[in-house]
Design a protein around this nucleic acid. Structure first.
Length: 803
DNA sequence: AGCACGCCGACT
DNA sequence: GTCGGCGTGCTC
């Protein structure tokens, strides 16, 4: 038997199956989707079996044997194996990368070289002996001294030591020690025989008599009986109980926030939507729904009941939410409804916890998975429904290879299972809404709030007028007044500051110099916490200069409106206000999000001040005011999605206010009140926004009227990158059809990152059957010739932004 | 990607 | 004379 194996090596000529002979004893167990350890050239690597056959075209003497089978149960189903192949092609990535992205990171193999001592008596160098320190096997990377390294190489050639590569995985199964307490007869008997001095043992046995026959976790037993471990050990030794180590799951402490119950009785709109989904689920045909429901319209309840429907039919459900750790309320609701049937996968979990959740799914111990992007690869084999909440979110697109979009993967999987997909959003992406308008997706509308609350009243404040009135603070008179009122009424305020593109920078007031990153074409961001300047692209960090680096003037100070600065202004304006700040700085530690949100939900603060991350999921009854400090920051980005993103953000943020009994009020501060994205956020009129934005997209030839693909080039040498970009672009122009528009090559908006100059070229097309082949050819040219010249090239199909 | 093989310059 | 630089080519 011959196995086709894709090996764990991401390189261009390796991106294809290699044939291996299957040893006889593995023939009955090996399957497509199994992982194997195979010899590859001079080393050993992990690989995935992509197929089994009886004959190979490879000459017999070249054919090697599979070393070992890693999993008894294949880790990937045939469906996921096929999906990996399709995804690799569609995203122009290596098949191995597509396979690996489907499994939790803990299952990815680590390769580490080790030195093993073969003939200890022949090692005569003191430094080598010191490095070994009595051990016979040490990791090669522990040797840093080049002289010692040289000696090791010497020894290795003479066979005194050997160097091998160990393949390790972090897939540790957690085990817990349990104690099975013996029956009362044995215990009673034992009690009579213990030494009179062993008071503690006697005490434990008496405690055990009350629990005879039970099995209990050792830690719990010790805790409840108040006995020390050595005593327990002695009793076990004497046969009073037996101990065992039982496989267990790490329980991520699920943050419990209050679920705000929505009436289970559905509104008429919800019911209509649900019925259509149910019909599709029963039909066995794939159908994609766009559930367009305004904020507070009860989309989640529709999801929950649709899931219930498919679970009742014995099928499974996948629910995707954008960065789930930010929305503990959402997970809480799923766990409340489906209890132990739910696995949760999000970035806040440790590698081990993610692996445990994956195993629960793989072993069919759960039937619902709620998770971030990668949960779309949940190893279910009878999927009944797939849901993407907040489908417009850009986090569904992976930013490095394989650059897949979870929405596309969801639809591919639904076609395999003949099941519905629900894309839910208050502000759908233009692509999805356009597809729904054309009938590719089925549109479901929820236009009323579930509890019939009015939408919050939204006021747009023109900050230019404020400036004219002499108000130079970050808060308009109106917003400040509204905050004061909330403080008086003991209601809560959420202040939103979109930091991106508007962060604090350091400017010299004499010569106008802005302190730039030495490696990147971008200004450094001021961080008050440690008085430093940081680059958000390469991580460069330096202390705040005391004098201008250009003109040595002392009139150098930081400008802009970061959250830290906003916090200071608030405390000046409202000294009595209790403020919680939520941004990258305050949420770096694990669990920080939850802690801040819990504090706010418990009413321990009056004002929550934050960036992007507070726009979603917040659902607390006492929030009656939302203020957007600077709505323009996303508007002026050089990106075709700028208006869409702004509108989505404004709508999302506004939706945080007045979700319950108290009426909500929203203030949006801006320097461009006349822009339609802001104007329309006032009424949350998605349809009107859609029409206007579609007109703009049509005029400039952007999605959804055209598909786009971005080809990025970077090189340390400006002239070289320009040259290669030109070559690549010319190749594309010559190979693609004349209707396809190719823009560039041009320098990227941030023209240098980490000392590499960046160029890009944008392909816009309506129909381009040769695109994938052409790009593959381009990539081939790059990998075979240009790469060794130091060029980096990346292709992104359907980029979310064209920065 | 690794890793080995192989062919030319600067040292003991 | 040898050590070692990294160009080239291969991996079932």
């Amino acid at each position: 038997m011959i196995a086709e194996v894709i090996v764990d090596v991401s390189a261009y000529p390796i991106d294809r199956p290699f044939d291996y002979a299957v040893p006889a004893h593995l023939e009955t167990v090996i399957e497509r989707g199994s992982r194997v350890k195979v010899p590859f050239g001079p080393r050993k690597v992990i690989g995935y079996v992509t197929g089994l056959k009886s004959e190979s075209e490879i000459e017999e003497h070249k054919l090697k044997k599979i070393d070992e089978l890693i999993d008894l149960d294949p880790v990937l189903s045939p469906e996921l194996m096929d999906l990996a192949k399709k995804m690799a092609r569609e995203t122009l990535s290596y098949e191995i990368d597509a396979l690996q992205v489907m499994l939790p990171a803990a299952m990815r193999a680590k390769y580490e070289k080790f030195i093993s001592v073969e003939k200890l008596e022949e090692i005569d160098d003191a430094r080598v002996l010191a490095a070994l320190n009595g051990r016979t096997r040490i990791p090669l990377k522990q040797i840093t001294d080049p002289d010692v390294l040289k000696l090791i190489k010497d020894y290795s050639e003479r066979g005194i030591v050997s160097v091998d590569t160990a393949i390790s995985q972090q897939t540790k199964v957690k085990k817990v020690r349990t104690v099975h307490i013996g029956n009362s007869d044995t215990l009673a008997e034992l009690l009579l025989t213990v030494h009179p001095n062993a008071k503690k043992q006697a005490e434990l046995i008496r405690w055990m008599l009350d629990h005879a026959g039970e099995t209990i976790e050792a830690a719990k037993l010790l805790n409840e009986s108040g006995i020390q471990n050595p005593v327990l050990k002695a009793v076990i030794e004497k046969g009073g109980a037996t101990e065992a180590y039982v496989e267990t799951y790490r329980e991520p402490d699920a943050p419990k926030l209050l679920d705000t119950p929505i009436p289970i009785r559905l509104t008429e709109e919800q019911q209509t939507a649900l019925d259509k989904v149910k019909v599709a689920a029963d039909s066995g045909k794939a159908e994609t729904f766009l559930l367009h429901g305004i904020t507070g319209s009860g989309k989640t309840e529709v999801y929950l009941q649709a899931i219930k429907h498919v679970l009742d039919k014995g099928k499974e459900a996948i629910v995707l939410v954008p960065e789930i750790s930010l929305t503990p309320q959402m997970t809480a609701r799923f766990q409340e409804r489906f209890g132990g049937l739910v696995a949760v996968m999000h970035s806040g979990l440790s590698a081990g916890e993610k692996y445990d959740e994956w195993r629960k799914i793989h072993r069919r111990e759960v039937r619902v998975v709620v998770g971030a992007r990668s949960a779309i690869f949940a190893p279910f084999e009878n999927v009944g429904i797939i849901i993407l909440d907040e489908e417009h979110e850009s986090t569904y697109k992976q930013e490095d290879t394989p650059r897949y979009h979870a929405r596309d993967v969801a639809i591919w999987r639904s076609e395999h299972y003949g099941c519905p997909v629900i894309l839910g959003s208050a502000t759908p992406s233009l692509e999805s809404y356009a597809r729904a308008s054309k009938g590719v997706y089925t549109l479901l509308e929820l236009s009323k709030r579930a509890k019939n609350q009015p939408l919050p009243s939204v006021t747009v404040v023109d900050m230019r007028d404020e400036l004219k009135e002499g108000n130079r603070s970050m808060f308009s008179v109106q917003l400040a007044e509204a905050i004061r009122l909330r403080l008086e009424k003991k209601e809560q305020t959420v202040l939103f500051l979109n930091k991106r593109g508007f962060s604090s920078f350091v400017l010299c007031r004499d010569c106008g110099t802005v302190v730039q990153c030495p490696n990147c074409d971008i200004s450094l961001t001021y961080h008050r916490s440690n008085e430093s300047l940081k680059c958000h692209y390469c991580g460069h960090e330096e202390p705040v200069p005391l004098v201008c680096p250009e003109c040595e003037s002392e009139h150098i100070r930081f400008f802009g409106t970061g959250t830290q600065k906003a916090e200071e202004e608030i405390s000046k304006l409202f000294p009595e206000a209790r403020v919680l700040r939520m941004d990258v700085d305050t949420t770096r530690q694990k669990g920080a999000h939850e802690r801040i949100l819990r504090q706010f939900s418990e009413g321990k603060a009056d004002i929550l001040l934050g960036t992007q991350m507070i726009a979603k999921g917040l659902d607390f009854p006492n929030i009656t005011l939302v203020g957007v400090l600077a709505a323009d920051t996303t508007l002026h980005l050089a990106d075709f999605r700028a208006a869409e993103k702004t509108f989505q953000l404004m709508t999302q943020v506004s939706g945080r206010a007045g979700r319950h009994d108290l009426a909500g009020e929203v203030f949006i501060q801006t320097y461009s009140p006349e822009h339609y994205a802001i104007e329309l956020a006032k009424t949350q009129h998605y349809q009107t926004f859609y029409n206007l934005e579609m007109a703009a997209r049509k005029q400039y030839g952007y999605p959804p009227f055209y598909f786009i693909t971005l080809v990025q080039f970077s090189h340390e040498d400006l002239l070289k990158v320009a040259d290669f970009a030109e070559k690549g672009t010319r190749y594309l122009k010559n190979s693609l059809s004349p209707e396809t528009v190719i823009i560039g090559p041009a320098a990227a908006a941030i023209s240098r990152v980490n000392n590499r100059y960046r160029y890009q070229c944008l392909i816009k097309y309506k129909k381009e059957p040769k695109l994938i082949e052409t790009l593959q050819q381009l990539i081939r040219m790059y990998r075979t010739n240009w790469m060794k010249d130091g060029l980096l090239m990346a292709v992104d199909m359907d980029p979310t932004s064209i920065f």
